[in-house]
Design a binder for these strands. Structure first.
Lengths: 290, 290
DNA sequence: CATTCCCTGAAAATTTCTTTTCATGACAGT
DNA sequence: ACTGTCATGAAAAGAAATTTTCAGGGAATG
């Protein structure tokens, strides 16, 4: 094979599937902090990756290099190309693409959203919500709109594993009254409502409040009307260089909450997850193999 | 002497007057294309400078380094500092919270994931996939697993607005054969498969391939087995300070793709969205006000 | 349960790199 | 011109890195 035109990183990726366990471990170590991680001697990088030097030799040969020195020479060329090219000085995220590539523009926007959201976010709110969701006596109800329904589902799927009494409301508002009927005082309704706010969300929130439920809202910086009825609201920045809004930061908050809840009830959660594993295994036995 | 705070370049400059003819020659060779020129072995840089290796040793010792390896280690650190660190690391993202707050730790992790993913990502792959998805003659099929199903749904919901012929497969694998039956050659199957890879995904991918479908896989850095059958695969970093993997960066790629597709077919999409608006309005009229 | 295959790292063998030694030659001062 | 000093690189010695060999071990297969 010819290695000339492709970067070492490319070569590693294109061969990744063919690598063995120790080799994958090494490859990851190399790609982590690439390409600087490959600057040292074969002994050094073997140690950093936790593999033996023969593994290094075998892998670089498998990748098509003559030997470690050859491999390193290619890396040096790349380092040189990266450093000596002033434009490449990381005003861009994705290499080998213009700074105006959609990936780079998106990355900039998401960074800004994340920073702004976290600046505005009150960590006390976050902690309070995490604590609310950790309380197993409270039932959880998740609901999202047309677009945000997927986020609600994502949140629900995780919480369902972590704790009992979690319910995902259908995106179809006609079925909501039945869910409200089942809500008890102290239950929590988690609403995702991003702009083009859905009118029905307010009705749902009002009805839930009447049943004594607490409301947590994920919305954008302008605020869903449902946020006014909420005990806690997360105002997330959603701007993207796109005709669509970005849910990346919202998902970020959701994942952080999942971890916070899981962490605060780990002992109980651990048991649940073990049991779940068992159930999955059983389910597999019921099925015919692929 | 301590070399810690000063760069190697500084040290060379400050000692330049004390250097002999051959050493000055070597020093200039090093400063030319600094610091990359010092990456190779002592033999290499001696040759490049046109001096002998003992001259190199004598000079670096004169500069205060223990020996050539010591000298080179310092250079490596400088190269690393120059290359990495594209965005200054925030000691804390969320104000008024300790740096160890889950939000801050999560933000660090996601930033690392995003950076790493974009470094590894081939923009040509991204563009190819965007182009594939933009082709309205190709039917689109989305499928995800237990956790990633929400991502598939999110992607699907957007693409459904942007273009016709999009289908979301149920997470339940028993219904997949019927979908495969409807696939035509050239159709595209978008698979989300993150670790704890689901065995059925490979079967699905194989079956789809037999029907002539192209496969695009979203997976993690270790790679779903289904990725081997794929025309294109996105390897996304998913590590988080959590018992769960993070889907944030995956969602990022999805959103960027949505925008890329939408952008490349804006004229057609615009019409569709207008029509859709109208349909939503109509639906509202059918309902009683909340 | 035996067998095969292949990954893996310890250790040896080999190559390369780094340092030291030392002879040569240039130059300055006498 | 003689002598001492010092820079310089060839070559040897020493150290480290790289590659190869090989045996143990684990997973897959029959």
């Amino acid at each position: 094979m010819t290695v000339a035109s492709k970067t070492v990183s490319d070569v590693i990726h294109s061969h990744f599937g063919l690598l063995t366990r120790a080799e994958k471990q090494l490859a990851e170590s190399l790609l982590d902090n690439y390409p600087v991680s490959g600057l040292g001697s074969i002994t050094t990088i073997a140690e950093n990756a936790g593999v033996s030097t023969p593994t290094v030799v075998r892998m670089v040969q498998k990748l098509g290099f003559k030997g470690y020195p050859d491999f390193q020479a290619h890396l040096h060329l790349e380092v040189e190309a990266t450093i000596s090219n002033p434009i490449a000085k990381h005003d861009r995220w994705a290499q080998n693409a213009p700074g105006t590539h959609i990936l780079n523009r998106f990355a900039d926007a998401i960074m800004g959203n994340l920073r702004q959201t976290l600046t505005d976010l009150d960590t006390a709110t976050f902690d309070s919500v995490a604590s609310l969701l950790s309380n197993r006596k409270r039932g959880l109800y998740f609901v999202g709109g047309r677009i945000t329904g997927a986020l609600a589902e994502y949140f629900f799927t995780h919480m369902q594993v972590i704790r009992p009494a979690t319910t995902l409301l259908s995106s179809n508002s006609s079925s909501w009254p039945q869910y409200v009927l089942n809500m008890n005082a102290g239950d929590i309704l988690i609403i995702f409502d991003i702009r083009r706010y859905e009118q029905e969300m307010v009705s749902l929130a009002t009805a839930a409040r009447k049943r004594g439920a607490e409301i947590v809202v994920f919305t954008d910086q302008w605020g869903s009307p449902a946020a006014k009825l909420a005990r806690h609201a997360f105002r997330v920045r959603i701007e993207a260089p796109s005709a669509w809004d970005s849910s990346v930061v919202t998902l970020f908050i959701v994942e952080a909450l999942i971890e916070a809840v899981q962490n605060s009830t780990w002992d109980e959660t651990k048991e649940r997850m073990k049991t779940l594993e068992g159930l999955f295994e059983q389910t597999k036995l019921f099925r015919k193999p692929g």
